[in-house]
């Protein structure tokens, strides 16, 4: 059987900022279609830097981030066609309604065939009630905006999805709904790279968990490898162990 090609590839990905700070140090991992990869780590571990490199918001100092085999810093526009993105704190256009925001970002992503009904269906799918669809976003809560952001990423229908702390700020019910949504997206064959602090959610949904610390990928385990393991304990061990090693 032919081995599937990874949709997202970090290949020796390194980023050193102009002030000398090494944010990412030769990090390599793959995310395959139909797989959820959870990057765990504290603040400044390099999770968001990795996502920024996939989005070509910054250029790598060394190595490559590839989307479906396309190096993002070489062909950023082509790579972005295959990417959807949800940020930690989704902030859309406050004077637009949810439908208007969805319409704009869907068309920006190259999808011009959607109707209002399609937008409504997706908003309902992410759990946004119908009465809110025509309201301006300036009256939305953080959770509602987050749902809009997820709806936008679904509408893009991209094979790869990047999620930067997607459950941050969501109430427990919304977080559960979000996990169900991720599972359905995985079933659709999407490759999902998610950065998170939430060990519990990561364990629940991730096919692969990577722990990052100070720009290094210090542990990577598949769901199978994690069976029977206490991820929280592992997380603390790897973090402190790495710190001891560095010391």
């Amino acid at each position: 059987m032919e081995t599937p090609r990874p949709m997202l590839e970090a290949d020796g990905l390194t980023k050193r900022y102009e002030d000398g700070n090494l944010a990412l140090d030769h990090v390599s991992f793959d995310v395959y279609p139909g797989q959820v990869y959870a990057m765990l780590g504290g603040n400044g571990a390099g999770k968001t830097t990795a996502i920024n490199l996939f989005l070509n918001f910054i250029e790598p100092t060394d190595g490559e981030a590839r989307v479906d085999g396309i190096a993002t810093h070489k062909e950023p526009l082509k790579a972005k066609e295959k990417l959807a993105y949800v940020s930690e704190n989704v902030m859309l256009y406050p004077n637009f309604t949810a439908l208007q925001n969805l319409d704009f970002f869907a068309r920006l992503g190259g999808n011009t065939k959607y109707s209002k009904d399609d937008y409504r269906q997706v908003l309902l799918r992410v759990g946004l009630e119908e009465e809110a669809h025509n309201r301006r976003l300036k009256g939305y809560s953080k959770g509602m905006r987050q749902k809009c952001g997820i709806a936008i990423s679904i509408l893009k229908n991209a094979p790869a999805i990047l999620l930067d702390e997607p459950t941050s700020g969501l109430d427990p019910k919304a977080a559960v709904e979000f996990i169900r949504l991720l599972e359905s997206l995985r079933e659709e064959g999407k490759a999902i790279l998610m950065s998170t602090h939430d060990i519990f959610r990561a364990k629940e949904v991730a096919d692969v968990v990577g722990i990052m610390n100070e720009g290094n990928l210090v542990m990577q385990r598949s769901r199978e490898e994690l069976v029977g393991e206490d991820l929280e304990k592992l997380y603390v061990e790897y973090m402190t162990g790495y710190m001891d090693e560095v010391a």
Binding site: L55, F57, L92, P94, G149
Partner: peptide, 14 residues
């Protein structure tokens, strides 16, 4: 500041 620039440029926008 609104965060819309990140979201816009997550798309293939020259």
């Amino acid at each position: 500041e609104r965060g819309t620039l990140r979201l816009s440029f997550a798309n293939p926008v020259p």
